[in-house]
């Protein structure tokens, strides 16, 4: 157990630890000593072995001689050409995945904001119940939910029939196997990732600030733009990140709801690894995806001006 320390009357642990960037301020009320290391060690070792080291393996694999195979073994030749080849051959699935992810994130932001706002300010005592309901679908299999979208959007389903009846869709128009279906599926599947951070930061907004803006004759829309939106920005940033990153890497929606001719990068990486067995090229693509996402995230976070989030 921890060495006995005199209980200090420090305030209960000020900021959540993820946000403090400086190491070890002296008066946080935290205990010093070896115990901290011992408690952290197992998790840190696990993550080092199975998250950090694999990342190094991925980088190394991406530079192997592309003519190697699982049977003959691979040779490290620093073949940077793997990257050029991979990007040249697969830049469309790469951009497509990023575009799908961005479109889905935008839809999630609109839907998620309405829902999070309603829960934070309008739900009253039903708040907790509504929050539970937001997460509830998340506990049913991702694949099954996506397969049900396949049923819902099917060519002779109600949705397509209705759209055709309203002439929003041509008589032989369809939703399945189109980018619309893929984006809709992604937006659906990742909605909770948007709603929860949005709710967390909208819920912190003091409603009196919004009242004050209306007392000062601000139109509700102006009040929203000048008060609510800026104050909810941290939630917007983390919600969009939590939605965009998995959505850009996902290939389940594209494969189940999209057209087989319009692959996304995740599906290319997967099949290069397991079907083609072309590890160097798959690893290079994986690295490119990771680097692109990190770069986009950094630019975005910088523009949003909330760097302290990471």
């Amino acid at each position: 157990m921890a060495p006995p320390t005199t209980p200090t009357l420090a305030p209960p642990d000020a900021p959540p630890p993820s946000t403090d960037l400086a190491d070890a301020e002296p008066d946080t009320g935290r205990k010093r000593g070896l115990t901290g290391y011992l408690l952290l060690l197992p998790a840190a070792v696990w993550l080092a072995l199975f998250f950090v080291v694999p990342f190094y393996s991925l980088a190394a694999t991406s530079l192997y001689d592309p003519s190697g195979s699982d049977f003959r073994g691979y040779e490290m030749t620093y073949a940077f050409g793997n990257y050029v080849d991979a990007v040249q051959e697969y830049w469309t699935p790469l951009l497509r995945a990023l575009a799908y992810g961005a479109a889905a994130t935008l839809i999630c932001l609109v839907l998620g904001y309405v829902l999070a706002y309603a829960i934070a300010f309008r739900a009253g005592r039903w708040k907790n119940l509504m929050l539970v309901l937001v997460i509830a679908p998340f506990f049913t299999s991702f694949l099954l939910r996506t397969l049900s979208w396949k049923l819902i959007l099917a060519d002779d389903g109600y949705v397509v029939d209705t759209l055709q009846f309203l002439h929003l869709l041509g008589d032989d128009g369809r939703l399945l196997a189109t980018p619309v279906a893929v984006v809709a599926g992604l937006a659906y599947n990742f909605l909770p990732f948007m709603v929860l951070p949005l709710y967390a930061s909208i819920d912190k907004i003091d409603p009196r600030l919004i009242e004050a803006s209306s007392d000062l004759y601000a139109h509700p829309a102006v009040g929203f733009l000048k008060v609510t939106w800026p104050l909810s920005l941290p939630g917007v940033v983390s919600g969009t990140l939590l939605t965009f990153i998995p959505a850009a890497g996902d290939y389940i929606n594209a494969q189940l709801l999209g057209s087989p001719n319009q692959r996304v990068i995740g599906s290319v990486i997967q099949s290069q690894f397991t079907d083609a067995g072309d590890y160097p090229s798959a690893a290079a693509l994986s690295m490119v995806l990771m680097v692109l996402i990190v770069a986009l995230v950094l630019v975005y976070v910088r523009r949003a001006g909330t760097e302290e989030l990471l």
Partner: peptide, 13 residues
């Protein structure tokens, strides 16, 4: 990190 990257780096290891 996207899942596809996590999965493929573990496989590489």
């Amino acid at each position: 990190a996207p899942e596809i990257v996590l999965g493929s780096s573990l496989l590489a290891l």
